[in-house]
Design a protein around this nucleic acid. Sequence first.
DNA 1: TGGACTATGTTTAGTCA
DNA 2: ATGACTAAACATAGTCC
Lengths: 163, 163
Amino acid sequence: MVRTKVEIKRIEDKAKRHTTFTKRRQGLFKKAKELAKRCDAQAAVITFSLAGNVFAFGHPSVDDVVNRYIAATSAPEEGNEIPVHKEAEKKDKDVVIENNVDQEDEETTSFELPVGDMGMEELEQLEVAMVQIKKKVVDRINGIISSSKDEDLGLPYTGLTLN
Amino acid sequence: MVRTKVEIKRIEDKAKRHTTFTKRRQGLFKKAKELAKRCDAQAAVITFSLAGNVFAFGHPSVDDVVNRYIAATSAPEEGNEIPVHKEAEKKDKDVVIENNVDQEDEETTSFELPVGDMGMEELEQLEVAMVQIKKKVVDRINGIISSSKDEDLGLPYTGLTLN
DNA sequence: TGGACTATGTTTAGTCA
DNA sequence: ATGACTAAACATAGTCC
């Protein structure tokens, strides 16, 4: 049959999904290569299949780009001018996080903060509050981990990264 | 003129290169989104323009994928790969996270979270929620910044360090 | 600038070898 | 599975506004 209109929805059939994953991953890498070459830019693509396999491409290397990304997104201590444009930006008011591709069937526990209406000052206060909570959470998690030493196979808690 | 065959070589003209970069970056992100959605896979794309601007997309988030990549690639080779458990469907809990952010009456913005009573699962949900809020805040801050300047050439907000 | 257009090249869903 | 094939869907270089 000829190709039908692409419905961007999760493919249920496992084999078919994997086939599509392979094809599209190759296409994605090719696009990334072309972008890097034509525009002389650094680019990295990292994918994880459902099976847990990691596929990554990067120019000049995945690690270079990742490290630079981490450096760029980590808080600069001083006045720094590293532009970060995350492709999840909803400039519209009630921000819906775009990271979840599918959200009709999920029941996420989330805060609903009217961030869009907040001013700079309130945002700064919110940041302070979040830092404090984050500390509580990390302490609590570490407490749980240390109290369940046997079961936990040394998977260290890497740490509630919110950067 | 109509389009000619693509020659994947570095574009010399600066303006044209930037135009192409923008177009292709959008296309690349779109492809990544489709891959993530159709194949239910994790994917991240990070690009740096020559000007040094960072553009990143990730599902469920750039940082999630990056962290998993780091974990997967820096894992001690003994034995097997790291499961990196997750994907657990979020059962709705009564993790009622109360935030008393009330713009009308409240002066202070603060959370009161009974973290000490929470179990690991709830903590994980809380982490997810915090990440989402953090994104909202960053987006909002960047929105404020970019609307104060008429171009995104101004330095964006990269702070909000919660590590 | 930054979109809109559009002719063509490119990608890929479905199928079969 | 893996690879080839085909036609529709899609991406985009060049252009105009």
